[in-house]
Amino acid sequence: MGADAAPATPVLEVENLSLSFGGIRALNGVSFAVQPGSITSVIGPNGAGKTSLFNSISGFYKSTGTVRVDGKPIDHLHPPERAKLGLARSFQNIALFRGMTVLDNIKLGRHAHMKTGLLDALFYFGRARREEVELRREVEERIIDFLEIDHIRKAPVASLPYGLQKRVELARALAMRPRLLMLDEPVAGMNREETEDMARFILDVREEWGVPVLMVEHDMGMVMDISDHVVVLNFGQMIAQGTPREVQANPEVAAAYLGTGDVADLRRRVAAETRLPETREVA
């Protein structure tokens, strides 16, 4: 699926986005777009501004420049309103509601869309019951089944292993009926099997839900395998973007990574990647 092929309105457009913390420019004039139905990855060395970019798009940081969803600027919107528009995200350091069960966590994804008022809820009449039944059906039949977490639905999230917590976060994002799924390092710290599961889920989300994905990820193997479009950041600036193949061939990108000091590791990863795409090193 060629990311730049169609002239359709991009789901997300980021234009000339800049962000400073005091004297430090975390982002400097970043522009790119996420096309409908595509998987777009943002890569770059540590500290390149990837998570800052995510936080700017979600509205956690006040940045300059323009962010558009389906062609409409959202710069004036606060984070909860952006979430209601369908910008659903996960976090690098898992942000789940600890102390609640898996099911409650996922159902909270729908919170913003529920209309139940105080009295409805107190007496559990009419709308409250209807909404609850509808929500349960969607969550249980579609999301929980799809992500294969049926066996842990009643478990408190804090008791789950890391890989499953990441999956619950994805489930909660799906419950938001996302227009765009933003995943911040969805496979960080996972072993190969978990990584492959997650990659499969991300591809399936795109196929079954038709939801485009924007992700930040360090696992080059996965990024190159499943992305349609790759955006490369370094020191807050976009130094390249294009298809995985184009980005891999870009000498500036190699230099940015070599500059981080871990030369041997990168060489090994690039070599493994070009020879055998399915046996990748796990970061």
């Binding site: 984070p79 909860p80 913003a112």
Partner: peptide, 9 residues
């Protein structure tokens, strides 16, 4: 952060 991200004000 999670509360913000699911649209809670």
């Amino acid at each position: 952060a999670a509360a913000y991200s699911v649209g809670i004000n």
